[in-house]
């Protein structure tokens, strides 16, 4: 099975969700986590993570701080902000609704007349 291309805007939600569940995490960690959670089904160009991160940061939904990794390496750690949590809730509701609607629209027709 070939990997899925990401829809516009989905990467940001994934990043927010990841930070919400995992706490502070660096870029590489976020990328790996998304790959793992998706069961390696999404085609993630890891470089695009950083574009998503800077966008989220500019919107004030996540914050960044330089820190030290478990192997004593300097890395930039991201955390979700209060505004980000609120945004995530809204986005999650939207995506859930969308996937439900899409599911219904695309469901095989049952009682055709």
């Amino acid at each position: 099975m070939s990997k899925m291309e990401l829809l516009q805007g989905t990467l940001e939600v994934m990043v927010l969700q990841t930070l919400a569940t995992m706490g502070a995490l660096h870029g590489y960690g976020i990328a790996r986590r998304i790959e793992q959670v998706s069961g390696n089904q999404v085609l993630l160009n890891q470089g695009t993570i950083y574009a998503a991160l800077v966008r989220l940061q500019q919107r004030g939904w996540i914050a960044a701080k330089w820190g030290t990794s478990e192997n004593n390496r300097r890395a930039k750690y991201y955390t979700i902000t209060k505004a980000g949590t609120k945004q995530l809730a809204a986005d999650a509701a939207y995506w859930r609704q969308l996937s439900e609607v899409m599911g219904r629209v695309l469901a095989p027709v049952e009682d055709a007349e």
Binding site: H26, G27, Y28, G29, A31, Q46, G47, Y50, S69, N71, R73, R74, A75, K76
Partner: peptide
Amino acid sequence: QELDEEMASHVEMA
């Protein structure tokens, strides 16, 4: 510069 540094650490970790 900051991004370069960040990606350098990313590459190291990977």
